[in-house]
Write a protein that binds this DNA or RNA. Structure first.
Lengths: 157, 157
DNA sequence: GGTGAAAATAGTCCCAC
DNA sequence: GTGGGACTATTTTCACC
């Protein structure tokens, strides 16, 4: 994982459709070299895939919310059960299994507030395994398009 | 926004590096047609970009957390100020400005729990504009790689 | 809007270093 | 692990439908 690999990750995070030729040019290596680097990074699971970023509005998901869910009995079976359930709902964008005040944070994207309401009362409230949930409607989201690699270092000392 | 556009969004969400030729083949249209469709979708802001999905572990971010932040005075200036601040921190993956019990939900990714601790006490606790925060450490994340377009419909009635 | 063919450009493999 | 070169494939434009 040297400087070239880091730069490949940076460049492909910014524009996954860069041609291999252009990638090689920016790296200062031959195209065959960058191609081989990409292959290795992919095989090692460093590059997990390439995805188009589609406007949520175009997907009829102009309204987003983060729903913190607490289960009645947060044991393995209940957690796995809810996780599977939530992941399959079309409104759900991502599901975080967490430690803290809650057991899950569910990121949902829906058409409007009526659909958010419907999601909460029809899909969540009816589940017996949920002790309760708190909903945070999203006003604005800032997502980093390019994530840098953090220094591998000890803290403080 | 017809069936072909929808399928383009699906296919490019799944694999942004699909060649235009292969895309056209799967759509059942000529390559020049799919190329033009992509151009229009991009110009209209439906396709926002193409990004490689890089393993968080490879980026030294094996530990993730969601931090719910409450400001002392959630007025415009304070909100914008904290949003700018949080977005610039290298540990931060995304920032949600929300309504509800909190003012922000900050998604962070760091090397380990020591670095999470350092992030919280060094970067957040020192800020005078923060009334408090709650941290949820992430055990597991399930993110949808392909987001479908939701039906455009009224709820209930 | 969509198509097909031609010209320009890029991807990929092999082999020598 | 890297780079050059040859071969193949893809992208892109454009006149036409």
């Amino acid at each position: 994982m040297d400087e070239i690999d880091t730069k490949i990750m940076d460049l492909l995070q910014t524009d996954a459709r860069l041609s291999n030729r252009e990638l090689a040019r920016r790296l200062g290596v031959a195209p065959s070299t960058s191609l081989e680097r990409i292959r290795v990074l992919t095989r090692r699971g460093v590059i997990r895939g390439y995805h188009a970023d589609i406007s949520l509005t175009a997907l009829n998901r102009g309204v987003q919310a983060l729903v913190a869910v607490k289960l009645r009995t947060p044991a393995r079976a209940a957690i796995d059960g809810f996780k599977e359930f939530a992941s399959r709902l079309p409104e759900v964008i991502s599901v975080f299994v967490v430690a803290g005040d809650d057991d899950f944070l569910v990121h949902v994207g829906v058409q409007d507030l009526d659909h958010l309401h419907a999601f909460l009362v029809d899909r969540l409230s009816s589940r017996r395994d949920i002790a309760g949930f708190r909903t945070s409607v999203v006003f604005e989201e800032t997502r980093k398009t390019k994530l840098g690699r953090l220094e591998s270092s000890a803290v403080g000392a």
